[in-house]
């Protein structure tokens, strides 16, 4: 099949309807560049894993859908001849083989000789930092070690496309954070075209060159982490990515009319609008001369900042991130200022 590190990948009108009639995926078309990491992000049941399995060759798309690697149609080719590498959520390491045998299995299948196989395994062991574990049985490994073995095994045979299905979900938070950094470094080193599925937005933003936000089997938005964070295409995306305030209000003469005052906005919309304001783009100022004010409800000190809820300013309490040095307590009346460009108009839902 297609050789070499990384191919261009094209998903063309791939939908998926299961035999019982459930529509798991609306027909989706998208292109992935050579060496790019594309992250499918969405809540469970949004179709992201189905998409991954279609690209892998574990599921067939509905009639009319096509998958192309380097512009070659691979839709009818079974997974074992697609030259993909895959990391499963449960890792699916072979319990009857030790670590080295697991990593070398794909090479053995391809008929690569013992010496070359061992050299490649050693290389991957070093790359993933699991030296000293090669002769262990897989049930003697910790979660993080299993994750590394699964990754080493998936990339051992230099796949055209690397597919990762929630590879960090099974780990605890601290380990997840560390492995996220490691994984990022590794994916950049390898330069393989990578499809990554996750429901964790931090993972998505950190690892993805581009992110596909999915909802109910359809694409809600495709873009870089910045695009999606700062200019969400819909209310769903805004709420799914990061903490945010969704404010529904009337807009007149470039001003947003709120219970606690008026906020100037950039967009010349008028009538009922829905806008998004990120907590970190709201500044706490003195009430004097403030266009908007409210009363502080909860104060949660997080360390690098403190997160407040301010009620009375909008219809619902606003989340506000304040500097950790700011002396403030519940019940204080504060002024709020928001730069007009930080207020994003959102499409309906």
């Amino acid at each position: 099949m297609t050789g070499g590190q990384g191919v261009t990948l094209r998903v063309e009108a791939c939908g998926k309807t299961f035999p019982d009639g459930t529509r798991a995926l609306e027909p989706i078309t998208l292109d992935v560049a050579r060496g790019e990491t594309l992250v499918f992000l969405g809540p469970s049941g949004c179709g992201k894993t189905t998409m991954l399995r279609i690209i892998a060759g574990l599921e067939r798309p509905d009639v009319g859908g096509r998958i192309l690697f380097n512009e070659v149609d691979v839709t009818g080719i079974p997974i074992e001849r697609r030259n993909v590498g895959m990391v499963f959520q449960s890792y699916a390491l072979f319990p009857n083989m030790n670590v080295a045998e697991n990593i070398g299995y794909g090479l053995k299948i391809r008929g690569i000789g013992k010496a070359e196989r061992e050299a490649r395994v050693a290389e991957l062991v070093a790359l993933t930092g699991i030296e000293g574990l090669v002769h262990r049985r897989v049930d003697q490994l910790s979660g993080g070690q299993r994750q590394r073995v699964a990754l080493a095994r998936a990339v051992a045979a230099r796949p055209s496309v690397l597919l990762l299905d929630e590879p960090l979900t099974a780990l605890d938070a601290a380990l997840r954070e560390r492995l996220r950094v490691e994984l990022d470094r590794l994916l950049r080193t390898l330069g393989i075209t990578t499809i990554y599925v996750t429901h964790d937005q931090t993972e998505a933003m950190m690892l993805g060159d581009r992110i596909v936000v999915m909802r109910k089997g359809a694409i809600a938005q495709i873009g870089t982490a910045r695009d999606i964070y700062f200019s969400p295409a819909s209310r769903f995306v805004a709420e799914f990515i990061g903490a945010t305030n969704i404010v529904e209000a009337e807009c007149h003469d470039g001003m947003l009319a709120l219970p606690g005052g008026r906020l100037p906005i950039q967009n010349g919309a008028s009538g009922a609008v829905v806008v998004m304001i990120r907590p970190e783009s709201i500044d706490i100022i003195s009430t004097e001369g403030a266009v908007l004010s409210g009363r502080v409800g909860d104060v949660s000190f997080i360390g690098d900042r403190q997160r407040l809820t301010v009620s009375g300013a909008a219809h619902k309490p606003l989340l506000v991130d304040a500097p950790n040095s700011l002396g403030i307590k519940a019940g204080d009346i504060v002024g709020l200022s928001v730069k007009p460009e930080a207020i994003r108009l959102l499409a309906g839902d």
């Binding site: 997974i79 993909v84 590498g85 499963f88 299995y105 794909g106 299948i109 391809r110 045979a157």
Partner: peptide, 20 residues
């Protein structure tokens, strides 16, 4: 899943059956 993971590594159904 073990079967799927062996298939992703290039193993034919018969190889998967015997090896895994």
């Amino acid at each position: 899943t073990l079967d799927e993971s062996a298939s992703s590594l290039g193993a034919s159904p018969w190889r998967r059956f015997l090896d895994v």
